[in-house]
Design a protein around this nucleic acid. Structure first.
Length: 575
DNA sequence: GCCGTTTTCGGCCCGACTGTTTTCAGTCG
């Protein structure tokens, strides 16, 4: 898909236009278009071919023409013009903390800086400190900003940031005068990666709280420290620097502040527009009619005054929640999950036995668990040969007979081979209660289309679930180049479910693909792919991802009772 | 550049912190 390239082109136009002092509303307009295109699950070329470009939010006649030009020629006149006048490395300077469009323009015009390396050079030579508007503190902040970017390595995975944020929240809760603390921001929304951690607390002695927050041994750098706001960096478990922001508010503003700092920015803009339409004003202190506070103590009352349900944080992305507010009523909840359909044991590369995994699942309140170890081609994961698999099936049946209160299903995670065939013969698959089929190798090969392989696997009557459909590992491995529209259609037509792999390094399907699958009528399964008993607890990340895709209970196979799961599985074999 | 049941023109979200051009512009979220 060309979507990502096009989204980047519009983002560059916005960056360069902002640096050249272009109208900020036009700049915003380009940014909005970039995001719209980046979030699309359909190929923009298809939308263009159907003549539906101007149906996209924020896309008017002018933008439609630019998109058409890009699709035709691979370039956009506006971008070409900007790039012919400005160095290609200029936009990257905007991502340095402390560098905004005005400062970027200044270093470019006055010192000829065209990228990060140039900027480092003029900092070291002392030229930057001589520039009007760049005092000693500013220069240090920018130098720190460059160092921060180099050690932060971009965004942090949800599963790494979550425990760290909870520890920081606990630290804040211990500061004198603090009544309550909440984690806000993208972490509260369950975004797959987060840029920084946003904390909120209630206290009346803001200055003291912020001082205690920034003056702690764990703090590496202090970025800001005021009466209501403090900003620091700490070292994350993966040895990178992570920014933590704290806001202090009084009780009457707590809900407004929580709403505000949870975001997303796009969601908040929509919300504030609704307030403005009623001649009100919404900010982090409350919802106001003139000087009168209409709401602010809780999020619920703010949304209620604006005639909306209190959207769960996962939905607050302006990706359709305002158009479909009813979706909150039957949204999937963690408590709806009745079993895990993808776990491993010591038979392949897991750490626990069948019985240990089953007992751990029972302890979570599950009614069933499917044991899905690797097939023989995943040699590195100690995949089971046909003979070992036959014995393994007997072992699972034995545990099933022994344990009460939980059903232990025979499953396997069978490899989808490069030609689309499966790693076990049908004779073995037929013996399983449930089969998950996954691609583990040949992911990037141009010769073997992952889309074709996946669709071929779905045609097998014994394959019930496609495991981690894009194969991505956040920050490590890009997703396979799959045609998701074809995959979700194939899944719906063949009666095959698509996995939402809950491992936080995977989250695969991701949120927008979840929505795409639902729209296509495909079934979903939220599974942990746990390799240990502790791994079962990561189901929450999968549920969060499902919720971000506005999944309801009815869309998720393992939110059903066992009888109905078996019924659904049998449905495909009986076709 | 987009958008419209107060609109086809005139709007487009709002406030904290910081440094320094010492009264506010720039940056950030």
């Amino acid at each position: 898909m060309i979507n990502a390239d096009l989204a980047r082109a519009f983002e560059r136009i916005a960056d360069l236009m902002e640096i050249t002092g272009g109208d900020r509303f036009r700049v915003n307009s380009y940014r909005r278009v970039s995001r719209t295109i980046g979030d699309l699950t359909d190929d923009i070329a298809d939308i263009a071919a159907r003549g539906k470009l101007t149906d996209l939010p924020g896309v008017g006649k002018g933008t439609a023409d630019r998109i058409a030009q890009f699709l035709e020629t691979g370039t956009i006149d506006v971008l070409d013009d900007l790039e012919s006048r400005l160095p290609v490395g200029l936009p990257e300077l905007l991502s340095i903390p402390g560098m905004g469009p005005k400062k970027v323009a200044a270093v470019h015009e006055k010192l000829g800086v065209g990228g990060t390396d140039d900027l480092k050079r003029v900092i070291e030579s002392g030229e930057l400190a001589n520039l009007p508007g760049f005092g000693e503190t500013s220069v240090k902040r920018i130098a720190d900003g460059i160092a921060f970017l180099e050690t932060s390595g971009g965004r942090t995975a949800l599963g790494i940031a979550q425990p760290l944020a909870e520890a920081q929240a606990e630290r804040v809760a211990g500061i004198r005068g603090v009544k309550r603390v909440a984690v806000a921001g993208s972490l509260r929304r369950g975004a797959e990666t987060i840029g920084d951690v946003d904390l909120l607390c209630e206290a009346s002695n803001g200055r003291e709280v912020v001082e205690a927050f920034v003056n702690a041994a764990v703090v590496k750098r202090v970025l800001a420290s005021g009466d209501t706001k403090g900003s620091v960096t700490v070292e994350s478990p993966d040895r990178r620097e992570l920014q933590i922001d704290l806001r202090v508010v009084p009780a009457e503003s707590y809900g407004a502040a929580l709403q505000y700092f949870t975001g997303s920015k796009e969601h908040n803009v929509r919300l504030r527009e609704l307030a403005v339409n009623r001649k009100w004003r919404l900010n982090e202190y409350g919802l106001f009619d003139g000087e009168t506070r209409l709401a602010g103590a809780t999020e619920e009352e703010i949304y209620a005054r604006l005639g909306l349900p209190c959207f769960p944080p996962e939905l607050r992305e302006d990706r359709g929640e305002f158009e479909d507010p009813g979706c909150v009523d039957d949204l999937l909840d963690l408590s709806d999950i009745r079993g895990d359909l993808h776990v491993h044991t010591i038979a392949s590369d897991g750490m626990a036995t069948i019985e240990e995994m089953a007992k751990a699942a029972k302890a979570l309140g599950y009614k069933y668990i499917a044991i899905c170890d690797h097939s023989k081609s995943s040699a590195i994961a100690n995949g089971l040969s046909t003979e070992r698999m036959e014995r393994h099936i007997e072992d699972i049946r034995a545990v099933e007979r022994k344990l009460k209160g939980i059903a232990v299903l025979v499953g396997c995670e069978v490899d989808i081979l490069s030609d689309g065939s499966l790693d076990y013969p049908d004779d073995i698959l037929r013996e399983c209660d449930l089969v998950t089929a996954s691609i583990h190798f040949g992911m990037q090969g141009a010769k073997t289309s992952p889309t074709r392989r996946t669709l071929a696997a779905m045609e097998n009557p014994y394959v019930n679930i496609i495991g981690h459909p894009t194969g991505r590992l956040l920050g490590q491995r890009p997703p396979m180049d799959v045609d998701m529209a074809a995959i979700v259609k194939g899944a719906a037509e063949s009666g095959t479910a698509l996995e939402i792999n809950a491992a936080w390094a995977r989250l695969d399907l991701k949120d927008i693909h979840v929505r795409q699958a639902i729209d296509a009528g495909a079934m979903l399964a939220v599974c942990t792919d746990a390799h240990s008993t502790g791994g079962l607890a990561t189901i929450g990340y999968g549920v969060t991802t499902a919720r971000r895709g506005r999944a309801a209970k009815r869309h998720v196979l393992n939110a059903r009772p066992l009888g109905r799961v078996r019924q659904w599985l049998a449905g495909k074999r009986d076709r």
